[in-house]
Design a protein around this nucleic acid. Structure first.
Lengths: 313, 313
DNA sequence: ATGAAAGCGCTAACAT
DNA sequence: ATGTTAGCGCTTTCAT
């Protein structure tokens, strides 16, 4: 089914059909004929071919590190919302935390001539992203910044400060922190926490860094002999850390304080206090940057909010 | 940057460049020249144009009813996994439970000439899907079947039976069930439950159907005067039902039994028993159907499994 | 108001 | 082994 078939069926030229389909100047009567033909032939315009002329597709590319994380999920929902409102399909790729996949995925997005790219990938793929940006494809970094590229991120230091403040208010004095990686988000959150604790006149935290989820239990155990509160700087490890705590029979907030990052569906039911980031809004904003294509790199920073539910006292 | 630019730079024809890029028969020396030119010009092949020739894109389309549901999330992960292994990008659309959006999204997928479509949409869009299927685009229904289309679904009746059996084994005698809609999955699960209870010599369940999450609390309340176990046939409402129960001070399993659908990250920590569906595997299988394009409509049915954690006794 | 024709970036015969 | 040429399905001048 091509535009040619429709043209033949309607007894007009392909140019006319194209005009009808795209709202050009055509006589009422011919337009009607064309619509009828298109209908009866079950014609479906080829979006791929259209994109060739535009030079790019209307698709928005999204590269996600970890599809199992609630944060990224909400991010996607936000992106999708804005994309849908702009008739832009969303092309999704999951690196599944395998950094070596990122380059290939960015390349794929580039080759599909996405209208813009929203990525949570590591620095590895930055040069490619920058090249895309130079060629007129807006690229938005999420949870990270880089020169020459847009970014949407959380004020991670503020998140750490918020945590420290809350712990201090709850009368906690010795805190242990579980972080998830060396990435800037994690480092900044811990830094904010340190700063906040210092400002509150509290001792610096005991820190463990955990890459793998199955190391959490041991790490938390090593923390426990000297702390009265455990904070977790990544939503990814919330379940594991919580489990490590409760498995030892510790009750919150009486035996131990617990504070973690990122809102999640069960937080309310479990009474777990969190420092939340507006992930859905961040997704929306990222997509808006793609749609609006600001000329100069924009760095959007969102503020975290504390949701106190009693797990710290 | 087109193939023509590369050809000019390398002093060969576009055909030769195309051959080099796609592994045709070319002299080592020319190939080297071409690669060098492509490299230095930063050439990136246009996947859109390629698809024109193939007649279709390599993209797999996925339409999801509800991106916030863990079930669909795992499904996507499965799809993405197989898609990535086949160099197929994934195009994602979220209907956000607005049935009226489905038709437009299926149409968009069609117009983008997706290689195949995996959809959780309602019957509304079936005629379009069937037309696509007729034109050679494999369409896979998830959690639903329809004549002429592939499908991947759970044995929902078995899920209900499993629930009934477990409740009976735990000594529950009067069960209340919260279902989420009139869709076949829900109906079949309840039917399986009824059948299982009957076979176990237990009375038929008290049933409430809840469309909106904020009606859950009232609905559960209305159930409570006469039941010693509550089952929820949709993972979407697990949190709400659980909250409705605990908010009334009911302890599981002593005061009330609780059993719900779909595995979720906190189930272990909370000791909630569930009947799980292999969502990730289902996603994989759906994508495989797209890739393999079986000539006749295939109906893949997965079996649910009980994960007993003590919330029923 | 409509058609003819050129061309978007690429591939695939068909030549040489 | 490489170039020439004719498309793929569509848009867009430029004529008429």
């Amino acid at each position: 089914m091509t535009i040619g078939d429709v043209a033949a069926h309607a007894g007009v030229s392909t140019a006319t059909v194209s005009r009808v389909l795209n709202g050009g100047l055509v006589a009422e009567s011919t337009a009607a004929k064309v619509w009828a033909s298109a209908e009866s032939l079950g014609y479906s315009p080829n979006a791929l071919t259209k994109s060739i002329f535009a030079g790019r597709s209307s698709t928005i590319g999204v590269i996600i590190r970890d599809l199992s994380s609630p944060f990224y999920l909400d991010l996607i929902r936000g992106v999708d919302e804005v994309a849908a409102a702009n008739d832009s399909p969303v092309m999704l790729a999951n690196t599944d935390r395998r950094t070596d996949r990122e380059a290939a995925q960015v390349r794929a997005m580039d080759q599909h001539r996405v209208r813009g790219l929203i990525t949570t990938a590591d620095e590895t793929a930055d040069p490619q992203a920058r090249r895309m940006a130079a060629n007129g494809t807006p690229c938005v970094l999420v949870a990270r910044t880089a020169p020459g590229l847009h970014s949407v991120s959380l004020d991670d230091v503020a998140a750490g400060l918020l945590m420290a403040l809350h712990l201090a208010e709850c009368g906690r004095s010795r805190v242990g922190v579980v972080s998830g990686s060396h990435r800037p988000t994690q480092v900044n959150r811990v830094q904010g926490l340190r700063q906040g604790l210092a400002e509150s006149g509290l001792p610096q935290p005991e820190e463990v860094l955990v890459e793998n989820e199955d190391e959490v239990d041991g790490a938390v155990g090593s923390l426990l002999h000297c702390v009265d509160a455990v904070v977790c700087t990544t939503g990814r490890l919330t379940v594991s850390v919580h489990t490590a705590l409760t498995a030892r029979g510790l009750k919150m907030p009486d035996d131990i304080g617990f504070l973690t990052m990122d809102e999640f569906p069960w937080a309310g039911a479990l009474g777990i206090s969190v420092v939340a980031q507006p992930s859905y809004e961040m997704g929306r904003r990222a997509a808006e940057l793609v749609v609006e294509e600001p000329a100069v790199p924009e760095r959007v920073v969102f503020q975290p909010t504390l949701v106190a539910r009693g797990s710290c006292g």
